[in-house]
Design a protein around this nucleic acid. Sequence first.
RNA 1: GGCAGGUUGUCCGAGCGGCCAAUGGAAACGGACUGUAAAUCCGUCGCGAGAGCUACGAAGGUUCGAAUCCUUCACCUGCCA
Length: 419
Amino acid sequence: MTDIFDELQWRGLVAQSTDEAALRQALSDGPVTLYCGFDPTAPSLHFGNLVQLVVLRLLQRAGHRVICLVGGSTGLIGDPRPTSERVLKTKETTADWVSRIQQQVQPFLDFEGENAAVLVNNLDWTAPISALDFLRDIGKHFRVNQMVRKDAVAARLESQEGISYTEFSYQILQALDFLQLYRDHGCTLQTGGADQWGNLTAGVDLVHRADGAAVHCFTTPLLTDAAGTKFGKSEGNAVWLSPEMTSPYAFYQYWVGVEDASVVKLLKVFTDRSRDEIELLARQVAEEPFRRTAQRALASDVTTLVHGATATAAVQAASEALFGKGDLARLDARTLADATAELPGAAVPVGTSVVDALVAVGLVDSRNAARRAIADGGASVNNVRIGDADQVLVEADFLGGAVAVLKRGRRNLAAARRP
RNA sequence: GGCAGGUUGUCCGAGCGGCCAAUGGAAACGGACUGUAAAUCCGUCGCGAGAGCUACGAAGGUUCGAAUCCUUCACCUGCCA
């Protein structure tokens, strides 16, 4: 059995850590209790959070005790972004998002058995504290001089906009979580994204100052593509874990579309595949990249992890059918119906102009945009390029009498379904 | 509370009475284009078929004409109290 810290490092999941030797020792000495927090900044978790969930999962499987924290209180305050102040969400909204995220986290961890994961909400211990106790008992441990040097805070102090006292206080609240979990659960390790380093070390410092204990933290790297752009955006939108916000089809497609230069890195991070398997896939990327074997493996594994095997099989079959080499019209009715069921789409009657159909189906935002797409030669019906903006969908365009496949560019598909 | 500066399209950022649907970057999208990859080059990038309409923090006003001038309000920043 390999050392879990080696495993994490090999998978590229460790960016920065406190005393590495001590942390490595602690992890190999026996079960460590660790936590990672997720703030409710949206009704769903997203790509970036998935990295953290994967880390927790690996650590739990290695026998460690995982606490998953949802930030009912920190979510009310807002982690300072380097760019600008956040708009406060109402308490009701935050509470709603907390419960959604608590649900969402369940499938990734094991909440039963020997080293069952624990779900906590920091509102439980933060809400009862009075402002005076907070300032006296917690605030006294913090030097503003240090707080001001944290990256996000420093960036905001430089900016025109400045930073509110509310957001400035954020690091104290997060540090308090670590102290609380250390006291209640013996938690001695916190993980988080690279941007969380300042908040994590604030907690490590607080535990040390308040209780004299040495605890650890490590961050995962920010995942970027070859051009240095953050992963997790698809057409400008975040890739969400909630099927309502990013459909399993779109989710799968996101991963299939990963560039060659990054696919191996992502396989290591997001899949359970062994070194041997990943090395084999890496060779295939090098030798026959056009097969996209690694991308398909990645997409399949991650979609299964997030949406389950059934949904994955459906979107996979759909993708094969729609992006396959064959003529769409030759697909049998059943396959076509299943495949297009995964696509976004709308009801479009026979006789609708292709311009209106492209809008209705959501491939473009406006009729003007639809015309432009057609003029650019970037739109097609059933894989046949539309040459004329006045073209109308006729009976024969609805394959099997039911559905026309509209496409913008190489990979944006939608279904025009006959009502 | 006083004084000064700011608020422009997805983001950054010019414009400071007509030539402004608004320069320039970035992002995004499409084509060439193969591999549902990258890079490169070219194109597109408010709504509307068009007339036109809506947009430069909000509401009023001046003017033949306002993102640009005036008034009030809101928010942000800095200095002073």
